[in-house]
Measured scan of single mutants.
Amino acid sequence: MSIQHFRVALIPFFAAFCLPVFAHPETLVKVKDAEDQLGARVGYIELDLNSGKILESFRPEERFPMMSTFKVLLCGAVLSRVDAGQEQLGRRIHYSQNDLVEYSPVTEKHLTDGMTVRELCSAAITMSDNTAANLLLTTIGGPKELTAFLHNMGDHVTRLDRWEPELNEAIPNDERDTTMPAAMATTLRKLLTGELLTLASRQQLIDWMEADKVAGPLLRSALPAGWFIADKSGAGERGSRGIIAALGPDGKPSRIVVIYTTGSQATMDERNRQIAEIGASLIKHW
């Protein structure tokens, strides 16, 4: 067993022997301040990774656009098919120029040779490549099948209805392509620590998230040296922004954090800054 596999296998073990965790309302004060600064709703939840206990939450059962955070769930569904012998990570998928959609920095470079399922998941999570996500959605049967996968996990809230990039439209009061912070946090925890996926697939999923290259201005910008984070960000229309993450000190994750916002007129930089400040408060009061 590799060191990384050992780390993920012992996530519940280490967490069980940690000192009790206590909620700190100071972080919620910052979440509410972010709402004021952005002029928009902000949803927040913080779960203990081992027990699933909610440590703090704000608007945990209000719907927010998922945006690209759905790509972690998508690759979880792909990995479940791999575990069941219905898919192979090494299978190569070929596609054409007509398949390319807006923001496809990886797939646009491989029109000639195609990409493997493993490479597509890596591109979808680490670079948020939209064509990679659409190609992977095709392998599982489309958005409705991802929703069905989530329902089978016990998540009857999260739903995907459309493809990239239309799913980022974020129309107010439109339930399409949305989740709730509580539902997303619980589902992410199941994917990373539950028995739904094999140990190898859980490790692969967290490795992809740990290698995320496009979430630097968010929670990662607030992390002290030595902290662990595996995350996936999302951005959408109407001032929408979000991030889902597993993080913790001492090089291992111990909490799940989900943050979503929508309806702001603020710039992307300002949305990023507010999420980073929430992260800084979380870490300060850990």
Rank of each mutant, 00 (worst) to 15 (best):
P25T: 09
P25W: 14
L28A: 09
V31W: 08
D33F: 03
D36I: 03
A40D: 12
A40Y: 09
A40G: 07
A40I: 04
R41D: 12
R41I: 11
V42T: 04
G43E: 00
Y44A: 03
Y44P: 01
E46N: 15
L47G: 13
N50Q: 05
L55T: 07
E56V: 09
S57N: 07
R59D: 08
R59F: 15
P60F: 14
P60C: 10
E62S: 03
M67N: 13
M67P: 00
T69I: 12
F70P: 00
K71W: 00
V72P: 06
L73P: 09
L73D: 05
C75D: 01
C75P: 00
C75G: 08
A77G: 08
L79I: 13
V82F: 09
A84R: 10
E87N: 07
Q88E: 15
Q88H: 08
L89Q: 10
L89I: 13
H94V: 03
Y95L: 09
S96G: 12
Q97G: 09
E102K: 05
S104R: 12
P105S: 09
P105T: 06
V106A: 15
V106W: 15
E108K: 15
K109V: 04
L111D: 09
G114D: 05
M115G: 04
M115P: 02
T116S: 11
V117A: 13
E119A: 11
C121Y: 00
T126G: 05
S128L: 00
D129H: 00
T131M: 12
T131W: 03
N134P: 00
N134V: 11
L136P: 00
L137K: 02
T138W: 11
I140P: 01
G141Q: 05
G142T: 05
P143F: 07
E145D: 10
L146G: 09
T147Q: 05
A148T: 08
H151T: 08
H151S: 09
M153Q: 05
D155A: 02
D155G: 01
V157I: 13
L160R: 01
R162A: 10
R162P: 00
W163D: 10
L167V: 09
L167Y: 01
N168C: 07
N168Q: 10
D174Y: 08
E175Q: 08
R176I: 02
R176H: 10
D177S: 04
T178G: 03
P181D: 00
P181L: 04
A182H: 11
A182S: 06
A182N: 06
A183L: 08
L191N: 04
G194W: 12
G194N: 12
L196G: 08
L196Q: 11
L199R: 07
L199E: 05
A200M: 02
S201Q: 15
R202T: 12
Q203P: 02
I206H: 08
I206R: 14
W208L: 13
M209N: 01
E210Q: 15
K213F: 15
A215D: 14
G216R: 08
P217F: 03
L223P: 06
L223A: 10
P224A: 11
A225Q: 02
W227V: 03
A230S: 09
D231W: 06
D231H: 10
K232P: 00
G234T: 01
A235S: 14
E237N: 13
I244D: 00
A245S: 09
A245I: 12
G251Q: 12
K252H: 09
S254Q: 05
S254E: 05
S254C: 10
V257H: 02
V257G: 04
V258C: 09
I259M: 03
Y260R: 00
Y260T: 07
A266R: 04
T267F: 09
M268W: 14
R271K: 09
Q274V: 08
I275P: 00
I275F: 15
A276L: 14
I278T: 15
G279M: 11
A280D: 15
I283E: 03
K284V: 11
H285R: 09
W286H: 08
W286N: 02
